[in-house]
């Protein structure tokens, strides 16, 4: 397919590392791709509040409770930054909401796993936020300006998320034998789903090549996953915990860890809606939206009344 003149100019800008802004000409697929990716990212932040919200009332100390509240509040903020970024591409907030609530839009499949012990708060912060940060650090350099800018803010805020999680893991793994076992159990359950967060292998990732050309993505799924593994293994050693992968081994030649195989059937099965918590998560969001309807209506009515009074 021959490129149009506009398309060539667009690619030239991208190649020259100039950011694309909302009013610039862009290929229809660039717009579509970005709306899909940014909205999925935003939905992940919003749904991501649920597994952790689950532990706010049962946090083991006031310190942990304040921290968890602040973290969940950050996720809400991050969801909002991302929704506004998506809106600059011409999609409305109501439409974004509808797509999430009707199950039409996806969110990160990691949030369809349950958080059954307190150690899960540690593992989620350490591994899930850790993996998300790797992706988001890369996205600070994404070609679309309104997507890149909030990423910088998100990365700054999220570094505490990962550290608070690792702190929980550190305390538990150096605590009583029961606490250490709880930390190990959380690592066992979250390790593989965290690796899946980077997405399918490059060869099987439908959007990867185009996204790299448009510089929406700057590093491949497999590349990011490998960096994550290389960093995390050392952190697990400090905790004295075992990564649940018998094939994990340092490779002197490549200077990276070799590791086992991801169960992609599980990944696609969860994406399709058959994970342990898909239904629960969606129902919770639908309920929150429906329960909040009267607040939104009242706010609009109040704003209308005030505007009328001012005009009179």
């Amino acid at each position: 397919m021959a490129e149009s003149k506009e398309e060539a100019l667009f690619q030239e800008k991208v190649d020259a590392e100039q950011k694309i802004e909302p009013k610039d000409w862009m290929p229809a697929d660039y717009r579509k791709n970005l709306i899909r990716q940014i909205s999925q990212h935003g939905h992940s932040e919003i749904v991501g509040m649920l597994p952790e919200g689950n532990w706010i009332t049962r946090a083991p100390s006031l310190r942990r409770k304040t921290v968890l509240l602040a973290k969940v509040q950050d996720e809400a903020g991050h969801g909002l930054y991302l929704y506004s970024a998506a809106e600059t591409l011409g999609i409305g907030r109501d439409e974004l909401n509808d797509q999430l609530l009707t199950g039409k839009a996806k969110y990160s499949s990691i949030f369809n796993y349950p958080t059954i012990t307190w150690a899960d708060m540690g593992a989620v912060g350490w591994l899930v936020d850790g993996a998300a940060i790797m992706n988001q650090v890369m996205l600070c350099r994404t070609s679309y300006g309104p997507y890149a800018r909030p990423m910088v803010r998100i990365c700054k805020e999220e570094s505490f998320h990962q550290r608070q999680g690792y702190e929980i893991m550190n305390v538990l793994s150096h605590g009583s034998p029961e606490q250490k076992a709880m930390a190990q159990d959380a690592l066992d359950r979250w390790w593989w789903p965290s690796l899946m967060m980077f997405g399918p292998s490059d060869a099987d990732s439908p959007h990867s090549a185009q996204s790299m050309k448009w510089k929406i993505k700057r590093q491949s799924n497999d590349e990011l996953r490998q960096i994550f593994i290389d960093r995390t293994v050392q952190q697990a050693e400090v905790l004295g915990l075992q990564i649940p992968d018998p094939e994990l081994k340092w490779n002197e030649e490549t200077q990276h860890y070799d590791w086992g195989t991801i169960n992609w059937d599980e990944f696609f099965n969860v994406i399709k809606g058959n994970g342990p918590c898909n239904k629960e998560r969606l129902t919770a969001r639908q309920k929150a939206h429906a329960d909040g309807a009267w607040v939104r209506e009242a706010a609009l009515a109040y704003a209308g009344k005030k505007a009328k009074k001012k005009a009179a």
Binding site: A70, G77, E87, R296, A299
Partner: peptide
Amino acid sequence: VGSLHAADAQMAIENARDVYTRR
């Protein structure tokens, strides 16, 4: 810094405080 939805100016400013100035 970005944008948000709000019913009126007061709500916009209060929400902006919560969304953009948490630190």
